[in-house]
Structure formats: C-alpha cells, structure tokens
Design a protein around this nucleic acid. Structure first.
Lengths: 140, 140
DNA sequence: CAATATCCTTGATTCACTCAAGCAATAAGG
DNA sequence: CCTTATTGCTTGAGTGAATCAAGGATATTG
C-alpha cells in the first residue's frame, strides 16, 4: 500500500474528513487493482482505453512522461491486456487497444472498485446533489 | 507525478466529482512535497512525528511493512530531518524525532499544502458543516 | 530537400514497496 | 534461571513507478 497523502495537521473537521475520504478512496482503488493483480497505474491506463488512442495522448492526459507510459503499457501488453499496433496514418505512432481479456479485466476492476459507488449510494438523491454542489464549490 | 486513481466509468455526477477531488488533492499533496524536495511518502512520515515514536507504530498506522519505514526514515535521516535514537526502555526499538530542521521543513510543507484549507475555505461555515456531515455519512 | 519537430523507445537512476531472513533484545514457560 | 518464543528493526533481493537524457524513425516545414 502506498502511504497516505496526509494528514497535515488539520485545522477544521471538514479538512479532516476530506483527508479521510481521500485516504479511503486511494486504498480502495489500490485494493481493487490488487484483486486483479494490477498495479494502480496499470488499472488507470487500462481504464483509459475505452477507445483506441496513442501513447502521447495518454501521457498528456495523465500528466506524466511518455517513457512512463511506454513502460506501463509494455507490462499490460505482456499480460495480454493491451495491444500496441502501428498507426497507419503515422508510422511513428502506436495505437493502443484493449484486448478482449483487457476488456474483461477492466470490467472486473470496475466492479471490484466499489468505493465511490457505495459511498454515494449511502446518500439520498438530494444529498448526492448537495454533495456534488458543495464539492464543486470547494474545488473552485 | 503518480498516475491518478481513476476514473473508472462513473455512473453518477457525484462519483465523478469525488474522483476529481481525490485527483486534485493527491496532485496538490505531491506538488507541495516536491516544492520541498520531498517525496509524498517522506512528507507523510515527517508529518507524523509530532511526538517521538517508534518505527513499528508508524508502520502499523500507515499500513505498510516495517522495512518500508526503515528505508524512508533512513532517507529522512540522511537529509537531517529526523533522528533515530535508541530507546532506553527497549534496546531493540528506536525512537524517531524530528530535528529542528525537520520541524521547519514540516511546517513549510504544511504551509505549502494549501489545497484542503483553500477548498474548505471556499465554503461558508454552514456549508462546511453540511459537507462534513455528508462525507461522514458517505464514508459509512 | 534540408532542417526541424514529433512520437516513441532505451538506458540510467531514484524511490516506494513487498517479502523472506536474520539479529538482537525482551518476554514467557518450564 | 534458562530455554523458547516473540517483538522491533534491518538487510537483501526483487518489482514497479517515475524521471531525465539521448536517440531512432518518421512527419512536417521552409
């Protein structure tokens, strides 16, 4: 498990609950990935291949170096979850696609990662709307 | 930057905002640590040494292997931010203490990590209470 | 068509993390 | 006491994520 990101000394209850939420979320994500023998990074990349796309696009979206993607995708490819085909339009580029097995694992991951669903499910529809509004405001 | 933990396909707006929050929080934490040339794990450990304590206590609280703590603390010690003194009561154990410089860096980190403070600060006191209550309920 | 920029990979390095082993010291049981 | 755990931490080996610097191949631009 990755160490939690916090807490810094919290000066309000709201901050403390915020930290708790993030911590529990992150751990749940990691645990769900682990159930499928994936690292969080692998689960993340796999989850972003609903449509085929290039490595560069992923790197930009995820805010990391392209070589990091190369390396993560190489492992996903070795696991048979992703293919990396040449792009006919541009032979420098590669197009990433989930294999059927990749689709299945991704789906199982989405099922295993219940945290967000469960948490939101504890709230009534009205409360869900309130929460959404409050978090949007807090995010600025 | 660590890759984000998500999104899984979100089925509700609330889930999507939740993911956003976690993502922005985690990135802000990492960025604040980076400002002080700390890794998130180092910032985390440093932040939990308000009182002197042993390695085992930390490992348990953080839910990781003791050897992980050994290694992170070794780096913090090499940076002069933490000392690892023998425990007079139990000579197997070590007592971790922040050095004055460790205190200063920790304080600067807490100052640099504005995200939670800022986010909560965008809400009125009433809204903060609502958010706290909603998140507590969502966390179950 | 030459210079430049883009897409990705490789190699080197650092750090986080885990597991298995082991050492040293304390605690427990005969 | 004195063996036998058990506890607290470290070491070593291994994996993976991440970054940076360099480079190869293809596109694009002047």
């Amino acid at each position: 498990m990755a160490l939690p990101n916090g807490p810094v000394t919290t000066s309000s209850e709201a901050e403390a609950v915020l930290f708790d939420l993030v911590d529990v979320y992150d751990r749940a994500y990691e645990a769900a990935a682990a159930e499928l023998s994936l690292s969080p990074a692998q689960a993340c990349v796999l989850g972003r291949l609903d449509e085929r796309r290039g490595m560069g696009a992923l790197a930009e979206e995820l805010g990391c170096d392209a070589s990091n993607i190369t390396q993560i995708v190489a492992r996903l490819e070795a696991l048979g979850l992703v293919t990396r085909e040449p792009n006919p339009q541009d032979r420098r580029a590669r197009l990433l696609t989930r294999t059927p097995r990749g689709d299945e694992i991704n789906h199982r991951f989405a099922t295993a990662f219940t945290f967000a669903r469960t948490a939101v499910g504890r709230l009534s529809p009205d409360e869900q709307d309130q929460l959404t509004a409050l978090l949007r405001k807090a995010l600025g």
